[in-house]
Design a protein around this nucleic acid. Sequence first.
DNA 1: CGTTAATCGATAGTATTACTATTATTTAAC
DNA 2: GTTAAATAATAGTAATACTATCGATTAACG
Lengths: 229, 229
Amino acid sequence: MNTGLFRFSAVINPEMYLKDPESSLLGKNIIRESVQMINELGFEGFTFKKLSQRIGTTEASVYRYFENKNKLLLYLTSWYWAWIEYQLALINANINDPCLKLWNAIAVLSNRKLTDMQGPGDINGLFDIICVESSKSYFVKDVDSLNSQGFFYNYKRIVANIREIILQIDPGYATPNMLISTIIEGIHHQLYFAIHLPSLTDTPPNEDYLEDFYYKLAISSIQNQNNLK
Amino acid sequence: MNTGLFRFSAVINPEMYLKDPESSLLGKNIIRESVQMINELGFEGFTFKKLSQRIGTTEASVYRYFENKNKLLLYLTSWYWAWIEYQLALINANINDPCLKLWNAIAVLSNRKLTDMQGPGDINGLFDIICVESSKSYFVKDVDSLNSQGFFYNYKRIVANIREIILQIDPGYATPNMLISTIIEGIHHQLYFAIHLPSLTDTPPNEDYLEDFYYKLAISSIQNQNNLK
DNA sequence: CGTTAATCGATAGTATTACTATTATTTAAC
DNA sequence: GTTAAATAATAGTAATACTATCGATTAACG
């Protein structure tokens, strides 16, 4: 619950929707229930028809908000990255140690360090969608067109954001973008593998094994880049 | 061209197909053209109808070989991993240094060190499918059922294979599976990002930047796991 | 040489998906 | 109280993802 005098509001490229889902009750229902249903049915099994039946409206009404379900997925992922940007700003406010900042960032990306301010909607359900379905928003034939329309801007901002932290640790580190995107996608994969394909990951020895693994991976890569033959 | 007296043959779980595509000319056409068409149209745009028109047969005939296009994708990815297992065996035959073995493995996984023995079919086209589409074979609602039927066995074998190399470098390394699956998925992502979302990766400074990055990442993680606070 | 079985092509048909269009009704805005 | 906007209701289309049936061809076997 948000009891404060300000609240989080995601900045989303308006071209992702036909009508702003935040602007009406129906729009909010579309967002809330689509998160639920994508997790229940998987993105392939999810359709606007099923969604409209569940929220007691018609397919045509849903289509007035989103061109198709891929655009809806793009909207959800962009919303998530805006939320992450906000979480990063909060958790690293007034912190100077760049290593701690990196640790915090990795914890936030692992959905572990959530500030007490709750997000609107089901943020855990949304995180599950990010882990399982979000790569389907860019592994598509029209990725270049989507990219030129700025549909991946929110994701890119997070990568740029964490790149600055890494460069604070070592301004000479050569491949910060590769490191960050490897870690982000890695977190999502490992969480999925832990549930569905456990032999592709390792049994968690402790609570924060995931942050631990990726933080150490990052730090050792940064520190060792010039020490290896 | 294979001019030798033995040739590569992939071992695939027979439950992935209804009729072995290797057993007939039509089956081989299905495999060859589906690799082409999935790359041209993307997996979502690819249909059995379009495939059958292209190879001059009927939809029903294609359905006699594969239950649906997801099973075909599973077949293609399994075929790829069998091919990789064979490549790994060749490139690391008679090599003792586990670090060199790891480097070779990462080079093979990056589609860079191909032995002179050509694989049947378009291995580069298949590799593109692996980078872009293969995660869609496990990010599905019925992943657990597919997994229990052994449909990801060939992938798991590669991970187990490279885990042994890592444990040769350091028998005490705690998270070899996480490291390997992170690297494998990372390679595929970075190659895709380099073409379509370049701000999520870094501009390649040299030819083997990708192997270089992931090899250093692996080695520094292995060497440093106990040196960090 | 003839029978049988397997394979494939041809055709047809169904349920679902992914939309688009139209109209009437309700709600909100001024 | 009028006007405009939003939505519900209905209908319809093209494509997708299959399934079923039926001959024609080929191969396998005795």
